[in-house]
């Protein structure tokens, strides 16, 4: 009895430091975002006392539905492109010799560890009106000298795929590595074409990896802000840009909080769905994948 109590005390002792830290600095601030939505803004950029529905009313801004819609469809397209590119890569990486696999993995991980801003800036240089890509396209008569490759939705999409792709490759590769490729041989022996075996045997086999990739790409994409800010223009703004503008440009914190609350809700729905889907699948696998 006494020993059992000591174990309980020990459990609390090792749990409390991180639990309290995250309760105070993660959970409370997240709840605070919802509360501050109903607070008035003060003229000098602070948060006033009392309660108001003013922010909710201003969230009815006629520009917002278009921005919300753009945020969602851009994130969906980015996620789809990342998964479409990452799946054959996972398949390839799982089938090559360990030496080569190590090399390809290193090539994939290197940009993933490289500074986020540096990678976005590299694209800004490449897409720049006087940059190499533009000159090449003009030379090949694929575009006219006055088409802009930068500051539009296409640039945002391209750079988002570029930065999010490793987050799709790693979980899909991890799942492919555990996949038993003899199943594909079996399917082919039974008369399936390569494509049919890929679709009906391989894809269901790496389901957990695909779900993780979806989660790891789609959710951060919804909150993108730096990429549309640097390579996008006024016609490619996302919710993140609006949150930043309300915070830094007009310093209306309750309004920024209202938009954040909206984004939090938008993020929680896919997150809870996928997590429950994956728990059902295999809790142990899910845990391992998250370690990536």
């Amino acid at each position: 009895m006494k020993a059992q109590r000591r174990v309980r005390v020990f459990e609390w002792l090792v749990t409390l430091p991180s639990l309290v830290w995250l309760l105070v600095l993660f959970l409370i601030p997240t709840v605070l975002v919802f509360a501050i939505t109903f607070k008035p803004a003060t003229p000098y950029g602070g948060i006033g006392s009392g309660w108001t529905l003013e922010t909710l009313r201003t969230l009815g801004n006629p520009n917002y539905p278009a921005i919300v819609w753009r945020t969602i469809w851009l994130s969906v397209v980015v996620t789809a492109l990342c998964i479409v590119l990452a799946t054959p890569m996972g398949y390839y990486m799982a089938r090559i010799s360990p030496r080569r696999r190590q090399m390809v993995l290193l090539l994939v991980i290197l940009p993933f560890w490289t500074s986020f801003l540096v990678r976005i800036f590299a694209w800004k240089v490449l897409l720049h009106p006087e940059g190499l890509l533009k000159q090449l396209l003009v030379f090949l008569h694929l575009c006219t000298p006055d088409t802009s490759l930068l500051y539009n939705t296409f640039a945002v999409l391209l750079v988002m795929v570029y930065t999010e792709l490793p987050f799709a490759i790693l979980p899909i590769y991890a799942a492919s590595e555990k996949f038993d490729f003899r199943l594909i041989e079996a399917a082919k022996d039974l008369g399936a074409t390569s494509f049919r075996a890929f679709r009906a045997v391989f894809l269901p086999g790496i389901r957990v990896g695909l779900l993780t990739a979806f989660l790891m790409v789609f959710i951060p994409s919804l909150g993108s802000y730096v990429i549309p800010d640097i390579v996008g223009g006024p016609t490619s703004e996302m919710i993140g840009n609006k949150i930043a503008q309300r915070t830094f440009v007009d310093r209306n914190l309750p309004h920024a909080a209202g938009l954040s609350a909206l984004l939090t809700l938008a993020v929680l729905i896919p997150m809870i769905t996928i997590t429950t889907l994956r728990r059902k699948e295999s809790p142990k696998d899910a845990l391992r994948e998250e370690g990536v």
Binding site: L25, P29, I219, G223, T247, A257, S260, L263
Partner: peptide
């Protein structure tokens, strides 16, 4: 780990301001 950074950034700013 999965939440967009901007949400964490703003919520912590509000926390410190409050």
């Amino acid at each position: 780990l999965v939440l967009p950074e901007i949400l964490m950034g703003l919520s912590m700013l509000l926390f410190f301001v409050a």
